[in-house]
Simulated assay, not measured.
Amino acid sequence: MGETLLHTTLGALRRDQLGMILPHEHVFVDLRTPDQPGYAEADTEAVVALMAPQLEAIKALGVTALVECSTGGVGRRADLDLVVSRAADFPIVVPTGNYREPWIPDWVREASEAELERWMLDELTDGIEGTGVRAAWIKLSAGDDGITPLEARILRAAARAAAATGAIIGSHTIRGRVVLDQLDIIAAEGGDPARFISIHTQAEPDFGLHRAVAARGAFIEYDNIGWVPVADSVDLVERAIAHGLTHQLLLSHDRGWFDPAQPGGGVPKPYDVLSREVLPMLRARGLDEATITRLTHDNPFNAFAR
C-alpha cells in the first residue's frame, strides 16, 4: 500500500500538510444545461478577481483546502480551478464524474459503461483535460424520485473506477431511500459503500434515513451551512454526534461561486460561516476540540484522500 494522499490543484498532499478542509463548495459552476449558449464559458481574469479573495479569506481563518463539487454537466472547469488556486496559493480538490439528468452531455449519454469507466480512471490517474490536475474523487447525482437508467449506468462505471483507485464517490441525492439504492448498486459492482458520500443529507427530513445510510458505512454530509439559521445547523450536528455518527459526518456550505450566467459572475457567498459562527456555537455548547478536529480535519481527509 502506498501513502494516503489528497490530490489537489497544488499537488498530492499528506495529512500532516493539511488542517481544516471544506468538503463541499463551488469555485465555478454553471447550472444551465450543457446545450445552452455560453455554457461554462468565462474570462479567466474575471474568475480569479472574484474568487481568489474568497479563498484568501478562509485561508486566513485556518482553512487549508476546499473541495470543488462542480462536476461534468454543471460547468466543471479544472483549468479555472487551477488558476484561482495558484493565485491564492490554496489547494482545491477537483472531481471527475457527471451530474444527473438533464445535465448530462450527449457524449456521456452515448458512451458505454466501459467508456465511462475508462474516462473516470484516466482523470483519476493521469489528470483532467490537459491541466495536470488529477481528479481526487467522483461526483455524481441521482434524481429526486429515483435513479434513472442513465444515472445508474454512470454510477456502475463510477463504482468500478472507484474500486480500482480507492477514490470516493459523492452523490447529490436528496432522498435517503435513493441513496440506499445507490449503495446497493455500488455493492453489486464490488465497490465499498464506505467509500461513498451522501451529499445534502440534511435535505432528507427523516433522520432515521441519515442513520440508515451511515449504518451502511457511508459518509453523511450536512452542507447547507450559511443557507439556514446557524442554530439549526448546530442542532443537527449535535443530533448526529449523539447518535454515534461523528466519524462519518462532513460539514460544509455549498457556497461560492463564479456563475457565468450572471453579470460579472454574480455575487459570491463566503465560505466562512462554519468557522465564524457554527464552530464557536458548538464550542459554547460544550463540544470538545478533539471532536471538532475530527469533523473538520480528519473526516474530510479520510473521505477524499486515497
Results as ranks from 00 to 15, higher is better:
E289H: 13
F258M: 01
D254E: 09
W257Q: 13
G256N: 12
G286T: 11
G256I: 06
A290P: 01
L274S: 06
G264Q: 01
G256F: 14
R283N: 01
G265S: 01
S252Q: 02
D288A: 11
D272L: 08
S252K: 05
T291W: 01
E289T: 11
V278R: 13
V267C: 02
P280K: 11
Q262P: 13
L287C: 10
P263R: 11
W257G: 13
S275N: 14
R276I: 06
D254H: 11
E289N: 02
S252E: 03
V278F: 06
G286P: 03
E277I: 09
L287F: 07
R283T: 10
G264W: 00
R283M: 13
G286I: 04
E289M: 05
A261G: 15
Y271M: 04
R285T: 13
P270C: 06
Y271C: 07
P263Q: 10
P260M: 04
D288H: 09
P263L: 09
R276P: 11
K269Y: 15
F258Y: 09
D254A: 09
Q262W: 12
L274W: 10
R283V: 09
Q262I: 02
W257C: 14
W257K: 15
L251V: 14
P280W: 04
K269R: 15
G266Y: 10
T291A: 01
P270K: 05
P263A: 12
G265Y: 00
T291R: 10
V278A: 08
R283Y: 12
D272W: 05
W257P: 14
V273C: 12
L282N: 04
V267I: 14
L279G: 03
F258T: 01
P268D: 02
P268E: 01
F258P: 00
L251R: 10
L279V: 14
E289L: 09
R276L: 05
T291Q: 07
K269W: 15
V273E: 14
A284N: 05
E277L: 13
F258C: 03
P260Y: 05
R276S: 09
S275R: 11
D259R: 04
L282H: 09
P280Y: 04
D272N: 09
K269S: 13
L287W: 03
P270E: 08
R283A: 12
M281E: 15
A261I: 02
L251E: 12
A284I: 00
D288Q: 08
V278T: 08
P260E: 01
E277N: 07
F258H: 02
G264M: 02
L282M: 09
S275I: 11
Q262T: 06
D272S: 08
R276M: 03
R283L: 11
D254V: 02
S275D: 14
T291V: 13
P263W: 12
T291E: 01
Q262Y: 12
A261W: 05
W257I: 07
G266M: 04
P260S: 05
P263N: 05
R285I: 08
V278W: 11
K269V: 14
D254P: 07
M281C: 10
P280N: 02
E289K: 10
K269E: 13
P280G: 05
E277W: 08
L287K: 12
L251N: 06
A290Q: 12
V267N: 12
G265T: 00
R255A: 15
Q262G: 06
V273I: 15
D254Y: 03
D272P: 04
E277T: 07
M281S: 11
